[in-house]
Structures are given as structure tokens and as C-alpha cells.
């Protein structure tokens, strides 16, 4: 929805990769080059020679951030370089959504409220800002949730909606894009 995407924000995808390549000069540089070609940034490189290898290969673990949707292209480029990808660990929680909760947050067990999101396995609470004006008065908190994708986020917010209803909390959701 052009121009009016609201509080939801898609961030760069963080990916960790375990690569295996020939242990010969220039190979590591060649392997890292495609990352910048797809607009990615290298966050960390860890390399170690596998002691029990009989194939004289170099194993490298890299952590990088790249714009969403570029991973397939990167994989293809690495294969062209003769790099074998042993494992890809994709940062799961790309989607962020911020909501506001109002009510007796502490008396209704805030940690349980958070647990109900975290225990879904596909979403977690990553930030809470809280304001408590006085004992026995309703408090207000801003809660940011991370989830794998839009569908999971909607499911996580549905969980929170149900919990808020049970605990008589007022949940203020963002106005999201419709499409």
C-alpha cells in the first residue's frame, strides 16, 4: 500500500551461514564478494580449519544483514563461486509491531501477559516501556512484538487481544496497511 504503511516495519534480514570452501588463497575473498553485490553487509566472519577434515577445506561462519528478498540471489552467486553452503540460519523475527496496553498491568501479571506471546514460538515481546502513575491507578505500557512474518504477527496480536480481554486491559493496535 504505497506510502501509508504504518507502524509495521520490515527490517533487513539477518542471516548466518556456514560455508565450506577450498582451502586455497583468494577463496575467502571470492566467497565474500557476492555479499556486497546483493547489497548485504557483513557483520561477522568466524573461520576455523576443521581438524578432522581430509579434504583440505576451509569452514567459515559468517553473519550478515541483507535486504529482504535477496537471499536466493546470494545463494546462487555463492554456488557459482564453488562455495558449498552447509547451513543457513535466517533471523526469524523480521516483523515488528508496537501496541499500547492500558489497565492494571501489574495486578494482572504482566509477565504472564508477555509469556503468552513468547510461548507461541513464532513471536516474542522485545521491548516494553511502562508508566505507572500511582498504586491502584491504571498503568500504560508500550509493547513491541517481533514475529516471523505478517501472518504470525496477526496471530500473535490475536493472542494478545484475547489476553487483554480476559484481563480487562485496553489494547490499542496500530492501524496497519490493508493489502
Amino acid at each position: 500500500m504505497g506510502g501509508s504503511i504504518l507502524v509495521d516495519k520490515v527490517v533487513h534480514v539477518q542471516v548466518s551461514m556456514k560455508l565450506e570452501m577450498k582451502d586455497s588463497p583468494g577463496q575467502l575473498v571470492a566467497a565474500l564478494k557476492p555479499i556486497s553485490e546483493v547489497g548485504g553487509n557483513i557483520i561477522a566472519v568466524l573461520h576455523h580449519r576443521d581438524p578432522d577434515t581430509t579434504h583440505h577445506t576451509l569452514n567459515v561462519q559468517i553473519v550478515l544483514a541483507l535486504p529482504e528478498g535477496r537471499l536466493d540471489r546470494l545463494v546462487a552467486l555463492l554456488k557459482e563461486q564453488g562455495v558449498h553452503i552447509q547451513r543457513i540460519g535466517k533471523e526469524r523475527l523480521l516483523y515488528k509491531r508496537t501496541v499500547i496496553l492500558i489497565g492494571h498491568l501489574m495486578h494482572t501479571d504482566l509477565s504472564d501477559t508477555v509469556d503468552q506471546i513468547d510461548s507461541t514460538g513464532f513471536a516474542e515481546v522485545c521491548e516494553i516501556s511502562m508508566s505507572m502513575p500511582a498504586i491502584n491507578e491504571r498503568s500504560t505500557s508500550r509493547v513491541t512484538i517481533k514475529a516471523t512474518n505478517r501472518v504470525d504477527m496477526d496471530a500473535a496480536v490475536a493472542v494478545l487481544r484475547r489476553v487483554a480481554q480476559q484481563k480487562s486491559l485496553l489494547l490499542i493496535e496500530p492501524l496497519e496497511e490493508i493489502a
Binding site: I102, S131, T140, S141, R142
Partner: peptide, 13 residues
């Protein structure tokens, strides 16, 4: 049932 804090926390974002 909105609180002034809700608007303030919104403002921060």
C-alpha cells in the same frame, strides 16, 4: 479509558 501516558508513549514513536 485512554490515559495521557498512552498518548505520550505513542508520541515517542
Amino acid at each position: 479509558l485512554l490515559t495521557p501516558d498512552a498518548l505520550r508513549l505513542a508520541e515517542e514513536g
